[in-house]
Nucleic acid binder design. Structure first.
Lengths: 195, 195
DNA sequence: TATTGAAGTGAACGTATGTTCAGATAGTTT
DNA sequence: AAACTATCTGAACATACGTTCACTTCAATA
């Protein structure tokens, strides 16, 4: 957490978090040293401790912020239409949000092991809340007779894995636009639940 | 690589690889020390260097062996039926193979960043060969008019991500059997490609 | 029984780690 | 101009790392 206000030249809390996010995503949490992060923001290692109590908190802050933003963005985007409409909105939202934050997504999925037990539980709870949003849509759609997945919980996990996978291969300079990718995933999601 | 034959009490090459696999999967490659691996097999750190030239080679051996086994097992399992039959065989094979090796799968997907460039290229080539197996099935099925995915390459990546995701949540003591899980994934895969 | 040689020990190597802190630096306030 | 205070440096702390190696151990061989 940053101090009140920078008084001289100075780096910023966000700058530290951005550098950490980039480096953690590129090399992994355990493989990145505080000195590397410091060098990236142009400062000595000791100065980082004005912005974070320790390295572990830096990781947790990144993951917590990411999950909070995910849930908040979804609350702002979700709508009240038919299950089919809601599923399409969810699919396109998920693709867009994740393509916008490849580093944060990578960290959120890969560095869970490096969290302390309490921190891990906190992140898992947020992840579950997000999964529940999709599960509710699938559940409503099945009740309405428009979706036909035999197991709603498994379908939830399978679809999220499929959608999140986009971050592992999509490159902005490839043959597909972001909208094109979303269209194609939506086609598969809709069919997968039998709608 | 292990020496010819143990002459006294002795650990074994496989024992070292198994300990490394378990620990790498649990805590991550960079977070596990050679001393931890040594302690796990009941030996001092220096003794490990009778079985591997260095830590990096230990990781590469694990990933290479995993990918070789994956491709070899698939070659033994794949059949010559209709595209729909072949897709079902692939789906059930993938689920079964991956559920049998959660640690190896975890490492193969999470530790790519810790490989040297040459080692990375080698693993990526093997992964691509596996993806091509599924892509060929999807391509044949589309040509035959039985599958209807608009983009075969994306469908390949999406389906593999969906199927591989099973390792992140499946626990043997849960409510679903391995066969039940395979049935449910097969239902989604079939529908997702419009068959 | 004497010899061999692979397997393992335990200490050492140089280097790197996360974190702390006294002191220097320099805007801001009085 | 003086006092204040947030910021950053640079050195130091204890600990850990991957790797090497002279030496011991001990089953198998001759």
């Amino acid at each position: 957490m940053a101090r009140k206000t920078g008084s001289h030249s100075g780096i910023t809390g966000p700058a530290v978090r951005e550098a950490a996010q980039r480096l953690f995503a590129q090399h992994g949490f355990a493989a990145v040293s505080m000195r590397q992060i410091a060098a990236d923001v142009g400062v000595q290692a000791g100065a980082l401790y004005n912005y974070t109590p320790d390295k572990q908190s830096l990781l947790f802050d990144l993951m917590k912020t990411h999950m909070d933003e995910l849930l908040e963005a979804w609350q702002a985007e979700k709508s009240d239409g038919t299950p089919l409409d809601r599923l399409e909105v969810f699919t396109r939202f998920h693709i867009r949000f994740h393509l916008d934050r490849p580093d944060a997504v990578f960290i959120a999925y890969m560095e869970l092991r490096n969290l302390s037990p309490e921190n891990f539980a906190a992140i898992e709870a947020l992840r579950k809340r997000y999964e529940d949003e999709l599960e509710q849509i699938l559940s409503d759609g099945k009740q309405a007779g428009v979706f036909h997945q035999p197991d709603t919980k498994l379908a939830t996990l399978a679809l999220i894995a499929m959608l999140t996978g986009v971050t592992t291969w999509y490159r902005g300079d490839g043959r597909l636009t972001r909208e094109g990718v979303a269209d194609l995933y939506w086609d598969m999601v809709r069919k997968a639940v039998g709608a």
